[in-house]
Write a protein that binds this DNA or RNA. Structure first.
Lengths: 222, 222
DNA sequence: AACCTCGTTTTGGTATCCCAAAACAGTATT
DNA sequence: AATACTGTTTTGGGATACCAAAACGAGGTT
């Protein structure tokens, strides 16, 4: 695999895991040392990450994108019709075997698995449903949304009640898809998007001071 | 402005205007001569254009993206809920003065203006409506869709009947937004997306042989 | 003590250089 | 004549060198 993609993936992982704090300044020279490579592949990787919304320009230099409460609201507004459409198309097009795979994914999360696993599967669930729609643009858009929500979601999987709430919603959506009840599935997906938005904003507002104290840039209303 | 952005914009213009044919091979070395610059900014521009779907990798080298009929169908499926959402939000949030601006845009297209103008305004209409939604992700997504449809739309604006059909649909959408009839506006937007898809696919299938003869790669079903 | 000034350092942007792998073409072999 | 081989060319990927502009700081002025 090309060096640029390796750097992209590693840097992305560092950002999504909050190993690099939101708002942190990045210099191409520091990354050069960190990844033991020249600036050429680093700049390509930064350009990609900028497209994914994980890295931004600040004047002339680079910074890890801050967590933006306004953006989380806008994402929910954007995401709702996407998830509804994905779920409707999945009802029409998904084979039963496909749904089995997704159900297994959900089952893999029992209360003893680490938070990282809940976090990952909570993302993958939505992307896999989108995949069943057979529409690559829906997949790409929902994947993009989940990446942008990813850091905030660490807070969502922190408490058991949030996890359980999200999981029961996931199960209901999957159940309706399996029985072909597309309107019920759509309504449930729609509610899930709004509930998730509320959970994320509540958590972020509650922990805002603590996150700021750790040097994380949290911007946006409230 | 940075050289990379200049190259990006010019190359994009060459692709969208069909000055570079769909499917055409591009080498970094040729572009180097064409734009009188080094490969560094060229490679950055190509990476961007790849993200916009206008340029692809073919094995190890670059090519202008072919026109893909399957992609046009998938884009319509993806676009429909976006336009519906944008129109609904615009109903709730747009000021009357904003709508005046868009109406003027539409009025600027009389039968004597060149096709280029119809083409541009037909794109801008949708992006501007999206802007009224106040949601940057909707704007970016609809903008991305319109860019990907852009080359096929040259055929749509070719015949007067297509132009007039599209314009009357645009006017109906705008009218419903102005009177705050969000459900009617949504239904109309939805129909417009499907009608446009049908017009594009019909035109492409009709002209397929001719386009192929000009060296344009047209791929996909039918 | 506050503020301007000018030289130094650091930054990202660009050009150029080097390399390995893939494409190609000419040649020899069957 | 078809095919396998091999040396050459061309390709994109990466490293390095160079530049202008922005950021920074020490020293001098008020």
């Amino acid at each position: 695999m090309s060096q640029m993609l390796l750097i992209h993936d590693q840097l992305r992982e560092m950002i999504l895991s909050l190993d690099l704090g939101p708002g942190e300044r990045l210099t191409e020279r520091w990354l050069e040392g960190r990844f033991q490579s020249s600036r050429t592949p680093i700049r390509a990787a930064l350009a990609r990450l900028e497209g994914e919304g994980l890295v931004q320009r600040e004047g002339r230099n680079w910074a890890v994108a801050p967590i933006d409460l306004g953006e989380i609201e806008a994402l929910a507004e954007f995401r709702e019709p996407l998830e509804v459409t994905a779920v409707r198309l999945a009802c029409a097009r998904a084979a039963s075997a496909d749904l089995d795979g997704i159900e297994e994914m959900l089952n893999a999360c029992r209360s003893d698995v680490p938070r990282e696993e809940w976090h990952k599967i909570g993302t993958d669930f939505h992307v896999e449903i989108a995949r069943l729609s057979g529409n690559k643009f829906l997949v790409a858009a929902i994947d993009g949304v989940m990446i942008r929500l990813s850091r905030a979601r660490w807070l969502e999987v922190w408490t058991e009640s949030s996890r359980e709430q999200a999981w029961s919603e996931h199960r209901r959506i999957l159940g309706y898809i399996r029985s072909g009840q597309s309107e019920e599935a759509a309504r449930e997906a729609s509610a899930h998007v709004r509930d998730t938005r509320d959970r994320l904003l509540r958590s972020l507002n509650a922990d805002r001071r603590g996150l700021r104290a750790r040097g994380f840039a949290i911007v946006g209303a409230r």
